[in-house]
Design a protein around this nucleic acid. Sequence first.
DNA 1: GATGTGGTTGGAAACGTTTCCAGTAACGTT
DNA 2: AACGTTACTGGAAACGTTTCCAACCACATC
Lengths: 339, 339
Amino acid sequence: MATIKDIAAYCHVAVSTVSRVLNDHPDVSADTRRKVLNAARILHYVPNNAARDLVLPQSDTIGLVVRGAENPFFTPIIRAVEKSCGAKGYAMALHQIPVGADEVGEGAELVQSKRLKGLILLGGRYDYTREDVIALGVPFVCCTYTNHFGDLDPAAFSSVSIDDEGEGYRATTMLIEHGHAKIAILLDSKDDRSISERRYRGYCKALSEAGIAIDEGLVCETVDFSMSAAFERATRLLAERPDVTAIFAVADTMAIAAMKAIANAGLSIPQDISVIAIDGIEMSLYTVPTLTTLAQPQAMIGEKTVEILVDVLDNAAPSSHVRLETTLRPGGTVGRVHP
Amino acid sequence: MATIKDIAAYCHVAVSTVSRVLNDHPDVSADTRRKVLNAARILHYVPNNAARDLVLPQSDTIGLVVRGAENPFFTPIIRAVEKSCGAKGYAMALHQIPVGADEVGEGAELVQSKRLKGLILLGGRYDYTREDVIALGVPFVCCTYTNHFGDLDPAAFSSVSIDDEGEGYRATTMLIEHGHAKIAILLDSKDDRSISERRYRGYCKALSEAGIAIDEGLVCETVDFSMSAAFERATRLLAERPDVTAIFAVADTMAIAAMKAIANAGLSIPQDISVIAIDGIEMSLYTVPTLTTLAQPQAMIGEKTVEILVDVLDNAAPSSHVRLETTLRPGGTVGRVHP
DNA sequence: GATGTGGTTGGAAACGTTTCCAGTAACGTT
DNA sequence: AACGTTACTGGAAACGTTTCCAACCACATC
């Protein structure tokens, strides 16, 4: 494996000169540059990242901690993050953790051992303290969620997310406009710091504005965005509450599980029950009927996240909080309520 | 950030001693060991991987190159690989590449720049030459596919896959046993080196054994395992060939796309058309009706792959080629042909 | 008392890279 | 002729770790 030294020997120059060429430093003659570049090609030089990382204060690697990566919603985002990192000269280190794990703790360890320059937290819960964030020691971006509470200085981190409350409101409103009143919500958790809690708030807001009281029996909590849990819960809902006419699922995966439960119960969509969701995974284009969903711009989320982080890293830009828009992807799962 | 030197200073010992303790070398007194370990804890020591990787001939990192990671089939495998790597003291470096990319070339570069110890190629095509493999320079495992041709010494690499031809045969046979004769196959590519080609062979074998001639109009090639391509192709099939009574899709994702096409055509599953597939992704449990599929043991595939590779790396075990069994996951998409 | 022996420790080199500092040569200015 | 400037280059230290080799000590053996 050719090293920088081999190139130096080959060209009869010093290693420092080679290094300068390879790093596009000025102050090196065109002639030398050509010679070195040529030698690098001939000797099949590939830089040794370990050595570079060692001497540099930090490596050019961004960590991506994904909580609950089994959700297909994240797949295109992860892909976009890796791609964008590459385009900006960064490497990505992926770390998938179980839904129950401590993302910031895991992240901090990752940062230290791999000397990461920055961190992206994808699909987590906002339950960090100021100390946790300081312990991270590097800039980070919350991707697909944020700290709604303002109990942490917004300048201390960045975020890219949709307006969860607004979108929850929008989805619920759409059902109300179709005449529904007995609207169930299928969500991960009502927990304050959960990613889906704000969508639940939007749901509550839409209902109360329409003069509909929150019916606890229609609020279906599950766990971990698991499809099987969502399926079980939806099945139970349909058995217990034959009066329900619509379901708002906070994630496409959960909606798809609910649609299966509805079919099993012998009900039709949207004649008997309407379904709407948020996310816009590819699979939801292929359900029967096609799922009506507020689609998040997944690729853009990934790109924007990297862009923000790299801007902070390279240009010392201030942290920012980006809100992206969803797009209503009309399907066939929302209909007028039966008279 | 505490280094090994800080610990040495703190304990009044040499760095070499600290290193020995941290690496569980013998030849260090219980007393010193205790002292050093204690200091490491107090100073929040986290090893610097870059430094370790630099001095060690190779890093303890295994590369995972995934081609076409948008397929949800791979997600649980990737997760299992990362988990198993962690359990065995290795780190995983993920590299997702487009379906069209050169996996071995990309892999080789990854290996060199990150000084990887081994490589896993997930979901690729077997089109390497002997030279490509030598250029890799490290042991590698083909995951979910293999070189069927024997034009490469089996001792030169390992593989973990199902018996693609056998499973293709099994799926097709199941349709034949239900009385079907006009059986279409929906596949990625008939290309020799494609991952799905062997399943197509099994399809051909089953048909010819049953005395059914291959009808080229029922052999539906698409591209890249894309759902949209599969949907288009299935739609065209149904329009052109109203006589078709069953579809064998080589992947669950393609089957789901086909089911949508079938519904759009106003046909019922399984009354008008039966569908069977291979893979067993989670989503296929939630289609209506539930997809009948030959489920691959995804987690086990990931674990086994790592196990084999680590065995080669740690114990200089010979390379091996593992065949795993699928499990028939009966759904509601296969029925008897209409008289 | 000299010599081994074994367990434990320290010192130093090495890994491949970046970067600071000093040095050289060529050239123009006074 | 002496000097400064500019453009380029070389030397060497540094990053944090592992590992080889030498050294030390205590103890037993001859």
